[in-house]
Design a protein around this nucleic acid. Structure first.
Lengths: 188, 188
DNA sequence: AGAGCCATGTAAGAGGTTACATGATTAG
DNA sequence: CTAATCATGTAACCTCTTACATGGCTCT
């Protein structure tokens, strides 16, 4: 799922459009995007066909003599709408921060630099809600006595891990916001 | 992969063996194990067949009159060896802590309570190494100047997230160790 | 009488990985 | 001469998800 939106994002940045091989380069492991999402050529071409069928990209064939003809893809207006909707939508679970949110952030900074801060803020709120719910579960876990001691102590450890990971992500988001406004202030 | 080892772990705990439906109960979402790994019945039976073919479990059929016959599975000696090997082996990546390591911890505490602390210590070392490598990448990133500014600043943010998540996991592991030795001291 | 438990599975399909095929061109 | 680049894909193969089929039994 994040891979397809990453493709939409790349097409939004490449003005006359791009063909599969062009896009594949951005998913090489040394590129910033490839360091987050891995995408083999086979899957890339598969996704492009799916996006075409969904009406989010459109292809125009470009003949090239001896090589296979290039399919040059462009973002359609519907595709752009879908991309913007996706970019504004924070991820629901903490574990999705590492992949999907990073991809959103990557493209938000490029396509809507002024709205990237809003994405971060919304993501912060979502994680804050998750943290609250984890705290509630922790309380009910300490009280509720239908499980045996080993089970309860283990469940408490699990909750503690989830809370620690969520808190770490929240702190990172705060640093992001501080860093960005900091850089803005430097320039003014 | 963690699901199959969880099955081995459950069979190690159930003495005369267990059939699929028995095992499935442990993967219900309200059970401590089901809160970590989700496993639908279809996949469970599939895994049991795979484990049988691998020689890690063996099945004996138990007729039941009108209902479909029970396949009662038992852990084989090879299965036990594989389980113990897996239990002693820390996970390589921080993101595997949330799933695979928690399953290891769950069974380590039940099957080898005295070795659980060792697993945690080994996991700590592994994550510590990961953290060192992330720090090195961070340094080379700040120095290396072949990328444009946006790319570099983004890559730095990505590294900062990974470090924050790894540090959170390390702190949680430390609390685990402190908690366990604390509980041991209480009992003595 | 109807819901849900027991106990096994199959079937269909989505999604992903890995490896390969093509065949000229260009760089070391 | 060898290897990589260009540019597309296909094929085989896993894994996982979702949903369903069976059919008697027990609880309310």
């Amino acid at each position: 799922m994040p891979a397809e939106h990453a493709i939409l994002g790349l097409l939004a940045e490449s003005d006359p459009g791009a063909h599969g091989y062009d896009l594949a380069r951005h998913f090489a492991p040394e590129e910033p995007l490839g360091a987050i999402v891995r995408l083999e050529p086979g899957m890339l071409y598969h996704h492009l066909k799916k996006l075409d069928k969904a009406g989010w990209v459109s292809a125009t064939v470009e003949q090239q003599g001896v090589r296979p003809p290039r399919q040059v893809y462009q973002l359609t207006p519907e595709g752009r709408i879908e991309l913007d909707r996706w970019l504004a939508d924070p991820v629901g679970r903490t574990r999705e921060i590492r992949l999907e949110f990073l991809v959103k952030l990557f493209f938000a900074q490029r396509l809507h630099p002024d709205l990237a801060g809003e994405l971060v803020a919304h993501q912060r709120e979502t994680l804050e809600r998750n943290l609250t719910s984890l705290k509630a579960q922790q309380l009910s876990m300490a009280a509720g006595g239908d499980a045996d001691d080993r089970d309860r102590s283990f469940s408490i450890d699990v909750l503690a891990l989830r809370m620690a990971q969520t808190e770490a992500a929240l702190a990172w988001l705060d640093n992001l916001l501080a860093g960005e406004s900091g850089r803005k202030a430097e320039c003014s």
